[in-house]
Design a protein around this nucleic acid. Structure first.
Lengths: 128, 128
DNA sequence: TCTTGACTCTGACATCATGTCAAGGTCCAT
DNA sequence: ATGGACCTTGACATGATGTCAGAGTCAAGA
């Protein structure tokens, strides 16, 4: 299977397939005489796994760990669970930080009369 | 005032002061004969304004707009309020997206028994 | 006055995931 | 055999920020 087909089958762009190969997230596939990469079904699965993990917000280095666990038939589910919960905590922290910012901004906006007068507590806050 | 003093007075690193100058967020200050940049108080205020806006999650292009509004003595507070509310909405959307990811992960983790058995719904989900 | 250490200058390279473009080679159907 | 679709590599870009290197400058002390 050529890289274009692998890309549409997996949902990972050609660009990122080559990138993942370069950073060692997927093995380098065999090449045809022409130099074209030749992918097998297992590669597509691996790419889909990566795409799903990215969609779940895993950073690349954790995806690397997850791939290792995935390939290890004797892995313990405990290890996977630990990673998932750590990731969930991280996401929660980021979400909370964004919400806190949002609340600060809204509080300032509420105090701003929002008409054509020039004075505005938002600008005043930024000047501090 | 030299750039190092401007940096510690404003809380913006020397690196970023030069960067903001290059992208036109702050005016290029006059230079001494030596070529050293020479900052005035007004520059420090502007840098602090930028730092505060960044801390509130404003992207650079919106900071550029805010600086324009800040410098415009005849601005309407309505314009500032619109920007702030738009920014708050954007932050809220991002936070919600992160929370949704977090819930997906936690739901998977709850179904994972987390012991030394190898089967794990998190890994299964990633394979889909 | 000379020296020395702290400061400044510019420019380059790195991050991270991703896109785009270019120049050249390959494959396949007509 | 030809044309269009595909593949190859490499380079450059994003955005905000850090670091490093080599070279020049300043100020204080001997």
């Amino acid at each position: 299977m050529n890289i274009g087909q692998a890309a549409s089958a997996s949902g990972v762009s050609q660009r990122m397939i080559r990138h993942y190969e370069k950073i060692g997230l997927i093995p380098a596939p065999p090449r045809r005489d022409s130099g074209y990469r030749d992918y097998a079904e297992a590669d597509i699965h691996r790419l889909r796994f990566i795409a799903n993990a990215r969609d779940l917000g895993f950073p690349v280095e954790e995806i690397r760990e997850l791939l290792g666990l995935w390939n290890d038939k004797h892995r313990a589910s405990a290890e996977v669970k630990v990673l998932a919960i750590a990731r969930a905590d991280e996401l929660g922290r980021k979400a909370d930080a964004l919400q806190a910012l949002r609340r600060s901004l809204l509080a300032l906006a509420e105090q701003c009369h929002g008409d054509d007068r020039p004075d505005c507590p938002i600008i005043e806050k930024l000047q501090q």
